[in-house]
Design a binder for these strands. Structure first.
Lengths: 111, 111
DNA sequence: AAATTGCTCATACTAAAGTACCAAAATGGG
DNA sequence: CCCATTTTGGTACTTTAGTATGAGCAATTT
């Protein structure tokens, strides 16, 4: 070393270690600032797509793999109603069929 | 400070900054050690489910929202062939229909 | 009050999806 | 070469999905 006694070198080493740890710690903490996009963003986008609350509800069931009849029973409405909702969803999501709608919805992160 | 000249303090400060940066950098890098589940894990599970390579290929297309006819054209085979593959996939994935198969496949993280 | 919007449901079809069953090539090891 | 598996394909149906159209009802909004 150019300058510095034994004591000085020890102090520098300690400072190095401490700031290294601080660096790791702060970076780790900085990564915990975005786990909020859980709920909230979804409904925002559905609005811009003009998807109604009921349609959105149906969309989620479709994505779970349920048939129109199964969704109808689950939501206590007729199958006709579900067909209407799904049909409207396809138009609004610009999808050719329900599987396509699922893919698009996932890409838009609305489900 | 107990001991140390002006020069010493500057050195300590520099060391602190350098190791702080090193700390941040190494921690950041340490988070890039698992991006391997890209490919590899998938094929493992498909084996356990006895899903053939071709069936797996069809599964991915189904998940993209394509129709049987579209998949057939894309893979240069007949629609009958795709129907056979999809039917086999439903049995192997224990799904009632293609949308259900998508959901199950995603849950198993094989797509 | 009148118009709008969302949810509901029906009828009548057309179009995909899915099942069942069978069978011929193609492929990859042993 | 033979065998097992995969991939391919067809026919014949049954079942879901999806479209088109019209309409009644309740809650808002204007």
């Amino acid at each position: 070393m150019v300058t510095g006694s034994m004591d000085t070198e020890i102090i520098i080493a300690i400072v190095a270690i401490v700031f290294f740890i601080v660096g790791v710690y702060l970076h780790k903490k900085s990564l915990h600032t975005d786990p909020f996009p859980k709920t909230g963003v979804n409904l925002e986008k559905t609005k811009s797509l003009e998807i109604s609350p009921r349609e959105y509800e149906v969309l989620k069931e479709v994505a779970l793999g349920l048939s129109n009849k199964e969704i109808a029973d689950k939501l206590f409405v007729s199958e006709s109603t579900i067909k209407t909702h799904v049909s409207n969803l396809l138009v609004k999501l610009n999808a050719k069929r329900r599987t396509h709608a699922i893919q698009i919805a996932q890409e838009l992160k609305i489900i």
